[in-house]
Nucleic acid binder design. Structure first.
Length: 868
RNA sequence: GGGCGUUUAGCUCAGUUGGUAGAGCGCUUCCCUUACAAGGAAGAUGUCGGGAGUUCGAGCCUCUCAACGCCCACCA
């Protein structure tokens, strides 16, 4: 890497270069953040990938975007820290270990908590380096010396402190509530971990006989098996159909248990029969009704999803699965002739996000965080702009959720995670919530662990040394600057970080939340292993190169954060660009004969072409800086692509083959590489290292990011150069239309602008294969083709090569086009309202366009006459 | 039920204060012109989902309809 004298290899081998370049950065510790620096700080914490995970396209996008921001800010000469780490991913990881155990015919209970955890730790330790190693393949410039894990000691301490503090403030409580229970995970899960799926079901109408009198009340239910836990039948108080029944008692079929008929507004008169059975232990709404009416809670389904063996459940039903119990119950109801009607009914069923098992709403004792008081400042922070979402529309989404926040169930009946710091006296059962066990001989710790998101919610400050607020990292790098993530975890993660950050550090944990879209397959489907439509970023890197992957992904990012559809071939876009950069750079460097010192840019010695490319570079530099600052990252990819390919390569490098200014060639290339470096770090570093220039920094990654410079503005000369390009294109067009082979040169006669054209004769000779150039006012030549560029007519005598009719047709087509535009321009100018209400500059511009069009049409018309 | 997003060239998508549409891929013709065939030159292609409105002027603003997608809520 340090050898700057040898040339670039003739073929671009992405992987070879990328490996070498990354090694160079790593070995020189160039990603290491210095907390003691007095430079302005810029920091990002990585959304910690699951410890057991492997790199997927989502990481590739998320990681690329973070790295772009980090590298850009590093080049702005800030002290940057990109904090890496992994999440212990409670349920996900535990599931993996349990699956492995199952292969040995064991369950976690067979080996016990201690051995299970030892095994899980071993697994986690083996895997936690893997995913971050894969991030390196992305070119991630994070500071691995600071790598963290949500279950490491520092995070553990932070979690304990937060839990104890929230408990002492009354913001954490334990209680019996109905929760979403996953019978497979054997744990409670939170509301947002529950997804709803539409399922075809039935609505069973069951007759409950009235006690001591004739008649019955017919209830409707989608879950007849829960009827054994019924404690009431509810009707709407305004439902005259049932008015007389309120307060009476009915007798349940199958068990004969007696329950009251109550009135509650919650019941919808028009749904089903208008009468609803109340099962507080197995339905969240019934639970609420139960509380309002002081009803008992009868549990009939256990934690495994099996019907309980108790006095309430008939013996034939006991021990059955929910599904079997439903079948059997219906059959029994039928036999007892109390099943009035069955109708098909589509309804939503809760599913566990992790394993897709149907959720059982279950009454159980769990820990909760009281969210409303915590949400208030978190709402304010976004409303006042202390935290900004990009794109803005996600703010609404966030606020809506926060304003309707519900308490957060944080306890999980798992083993892998932060064990809840609550201790119970072995004899009295007295509970102590504390950082440490008050007396290990007499107190036993709560067996539950915390929701994974509890610890990731502290991520921005627990990784910076908190609760030690005097630690260097915390002082320097907290609050962090930008958070980059997908919209799918705004509620899970972003919202929790904001609430926790504000509560415990009194500061928003970041000032900007940059939300990007999700990666999807070419049909817009979510990528998943089960669908078999995943694309492995590691494969793409091997095939196309990391820089190609990064560039392609970046170019697909829109400001609105639309989802990104990808397919393997799309990455050819980035690969081709990288290849172009390599070859153009190789050509440029091959042509440098001067020494480093001689390559200094001399603004007094610039050709028209030099001024043009410098002007273009300067414009692009300005746009790039503005666009990154506004998170229009996709835009910078296309600006750089267009500049390099269509301006530098297609024109400037071609022109340099005729007449070259080495200093400008090198200056533009170097600045382009710097501008591009955040997106394509490896290729830019590799080429920069080989450039024969004076380097102020060890790598391009630390070089200063180019900025707009007033002295490089050459608008007027640039315009002239554009005219030159238009002329060349027009001549080439004629050559193509008349099938003039490259081997036959053309003569041209120019009727205007002699000063400009005489300067660029060598360009015309080489790029349009022009033989001779003549200046002549009002030239008339038969058997000629011609073109008009602005105010200049160029005649190309073609003798027998030309079919005059073809040329006339060609020119008439042009006139048609010009005239249709002129028509609309005239319509506008003849409209008094347009003249009076349109802004002056627009009117002037339109007038100018009118003149241009008229002139051009006139020239063409006159010429056609002469051709005849 | 509430909210959000999308609809532009054959395909994938840009289009930042409203001034008659762009890219990549694909397609047509020509070219191995010693940086690059992963390339070069020239070219074709769109009543910007439908309708209405505001405006001198609408892909862009307002309303409405339609299709597709997502999120939240979870009436048994």
């Amino acid at each position: 890497m340090t050898n700057c004298t040898d040339e670039l290899s003739t073929t671009y081998n992405a992987r070879e270069i990328e490996k070498e370049t990354y090694k160079f950065w790593e070995e020189n510790n160039l990603f290491k953040a210095n907390a003691k620096s007095n430079k302005e700080a810029y920091s990002i914490v990585i959304p910690p990938p699951n410890v057991t995970g492997v790199l997927h396209m989502g990481h590739a996008l998320d990681g690329t975007l973070q790295d772009i921001l980090i590298r850009y800010n590093r080049m702005l000469q800030k002290e940057v820290l990109w904090m890496p780490g992994c999440d212990h991913a409670g349920i996900a990881t535990q599931n993996v270990i349990e699956k492995n155990l199952a292969k040995e015919g064991l369950s976690r209970h067979d080996i016990g908590r201690e051995k299970f955890l030892a095994r899980t730790w071993q697994w986690a330790d083996e895997h936690k380096n893997k995913i971050l190693e894969q991030f390196k393949l992305l070119g991630a410039s994070f500071d691995l010396s600071r790598k963290r894990f949500t279950l490491d000691e520092g995070c553990s301490n932070a979690v304990k402190k937060v839990f104890v503090d929230l408990y002492n403030k009354g913001l954490i409580y334990k209680g019996s509530y109905i929760v979403n229970w996953c019978p497979r995970c054997q744990s409670a899960i939170s509301d947002i971990e529950t997804n709803y799926e539409t399922e075809d079901g039935h609505l069973w109408e069951i007759s409950y006989a009235l006690k001591d009198e004739m008649g019955a009340i017919v209830i409707a239910t989608t879950r007849p098996e829960t009827m054994f836990g019924d404690v009431a039948v509810a009707v709407n108080p305004n439902d005259f159909k049932y008015k007389d029944l309120i307060g009476k008692t009915c007798v349940m079929p199958l068990t004969g248990r007696q329950i009251p008929i109550i009135a509650d507004d919650y019941v919808d008169k028009s749904f089903g029969t208008g009468a609803l059975k109340i099962t507080p232990a197995h339905d969240p709404n019934d639970f609420e009704v139960g509380l309002r009416h002081n009803l008992p809670q009868i549990k009939v389904i256990d934690e495994k999803g099996l019907m309980m063996r108790n006095e309430f459940v008939p013996p034939q039903i006991q021990g059955l699965t929910r599904e079997k119990a439903r079948e059997k119950t219906v059959k029994m109801l039928e036999e007892n002739q109390v099943l009035v009607r069955v109708t098909k009914h589509v309804h939503n069923v809760g599913k566990c996000q992790r394993c897709n098992t149907t959720i059982e709403p279950l009454l159980s004792k769990q820990w909760f965080v009281k969210m409303e008081p915590l949400a208030k400042p978190a709402i304010e922070a976004v409303k006042t702009g202390a935290i900004k979402f990009i794109p803005e529309r996600w703010e609404k989404n966030y606020l809506m959720w926060m304003e309707n926040i519900r308490d957060w169930c944080i306890s999980r009946q798992l083993w892998w995670g932060h064990q809840i710091p609550a201790y119970y006296h072995n004899k009295t059962g007295e509970m102590v919530v504390a950082l440490e066990n008050p007396d290990p001989n007499n107190y036993t710790q709560d067996t539950d662990v915390l929701d994974t998101w509890f610890s990731s919610g502290l991520w921005p400050f627990e990784t910076m040394g908190w609760p030690d607020i005097n630690s260097d990292d915390y002082k320097k790098f907290y609050p962090t600057s930008t958070l980059v993530t997908g919209f799918d975890i705004i509620f899970f993660w972003v919202a929790r970080m904001i609430t926790m950050g504000l509560e415990f550090t009194k500061k928003p944990p970041f000032s900007t939340v940059y939300i990007h879209g999700l990666i999807r397959d070419e049909h817009g489907q979510k990528m998943s292993k089960s669908k078999g439509n995943t694309i492995d970023p590691v494969d793409l890197i091997e095939k196309y190169g990391c820089d190609a992957l990064r560039f392609t992904l970046t170019s697909l990012c829109t400001y609105g954060g639309q989802d990104i559809k990808i397919s393997d071939e799309k990455f050819e876009f980035g690969r081709n660009f990288a290849n172009k950069i390599w070859n153009a750079s190789r050509f440029t460097l091959m042509n440098i004969t001067k020494s480093k010192e001689e390559l200094k840019l001399d603004l007094n010695n610039l050709s028209l072409a030099d001024k043009w490319i410098l002007n273009e570079l300067n414009k692009v530099t300005k746009e790039i800086n503005e666009n990154i600052k506004n998170y229009r990252i996709g835009e910078i990819a296309s600006i750089l692509y267009e500049f390099f390919w269509s301006k530098y390569c297609d024109w400037y490098v071609e022109l340099s083959k005729i007449e070259k200014n080495e200093a400008v060639l090198v200056y533009v290339l170097e600045n382009f590489l710097k501008l591009l470096h955040p997106i394509m770090p490896h290729i830019t570093e590799a080429i920069w290292q080989k450039m024969p220039i004076i380097k102020e920094t060890k790598g391009i990654l630390n070089a200063s990011y180019p900025q707009f410079e007033e002295k490089l503005v050459f608008e007027a000369d640039s315009k002239k150069m554009e005219t030159v390009f238009e002329t060349i294109k027009a001549l080439r067009n004629i050559r193509a239309e008349f099938n003039i082979p490259l081997s036959s040169k053309i003569d041209i006669i120019i009727d205007n602008n002699e000063q400009l054209y005489s300067q660029i004769i060598p360009y015309l000779k080489r790029l349009a294969k022009v033989n001779s150039t003549k200046f002549e006012k009002n030239a008339t030549h038969s058997k000629s083709a011609y073109c008009v560029v602005n105010d200049t007519k160029i005649t190309i005598p073609l003798k027998d090569l030309i079919d005059i009719n073809q040329e006339i047709t060609r020119q008439k087509k042009k006139i048609d086009k010009l005239e249709s535009e002129l028509k609309s321009v005239l319509a506008r100018l003849n409209n008094q309202k347009f003249i009076s209400s349109a802004p002056n500059d627009v009117v002037e511009k339109t007038k100018g366009r009118k003149k241009e069009l008229e002139d051009e049409i006139k020239i063409i018309q006159e010429t056609i006459k002469r051709l005849n």
